[in-house]
């Protein structure tokens, strides 16, 4: 009689994973700056999350999925730098239409720091939580965030002048 609740929980987790997919894909596009690669990584993340769902011990599912996704994303960025050099992909239309100044300013921030910035500013995670998601010490996260915000402040205020 204990099987049914367990199955319901597994099913619920699958539903929650599916529901998270659009947000994950958008976040990957923001971090990776290439919608095609972002889509690949988001889908690979879903496969990993579904395969390893038993490792999820409850709590913040979004943080768990972002942890998988961002690590895959950074691995992919590393691989691309090694094999192909820097991407020469054109800037995406959606970004250049919505907020080109911000999009260009974000490009100057290293990908891990960029991811940390989104986790902090958009999701409200603490520096310690971001450190766990990105596999970095809390102090490093604080340093990334400080530098990223300084850089953005400088770039965006220059644009306003």
């Amino acid at each position: 009689m204990e099987l049914a609740p367990a199955l319901t929980t597994t099913h619920d987790l699958e539903q929650e994973l599916v529901a998270l997919y659009p947000a994950l894909a958008r976040r990957m596009a923001m971090v990776l700056r290439d919608p095609d690669i972002a889509q690949d990584i988001a889908q690979s993340t879903m496969v990993r999350a579904l395969e390893h769902r038993r490792r999820f011990n409850g709590g913040d599912l979004r943080a768990w999925v972002y942890t998988i996704g961002l690590r895959l994303a950074f691995n992919e960025l590393r691989r691309r730098r090694t094999v192909q050099g820097r991407s020469s992909a054109e800037e995406p239309t959606w970004a250049m239409t919505m907020d080109p100044d911000l999009w260009v300013a974000l490009a100057a921030i290293e990908p891990r720091a960029r991811a940390a910035l989104f986790l902090s500013v958009l999701d409200g995670y603490t520096h310690a939580e971001i450190g766990r998601i990105l596999g970095a010490p809390e102090g490093t996260v604080s340093s990334w965030l400080s530098r990223a915000k300084d850089r953005l402040r400088s770039a965006l205020e220059e644009d306003d002048r």
Binding site: R26, A29, A38, A95, V121, L122
Partner: peptide, 22 residues
Amino acid sequence: HFHADLRARLLRLEAAAPDAAP
């Protein structure tokens, strides 16, 4: 003000990103 403005702009930008909806 900067943080609030940055958050609002990032939210708008991320909302415009493709979500690869099937």
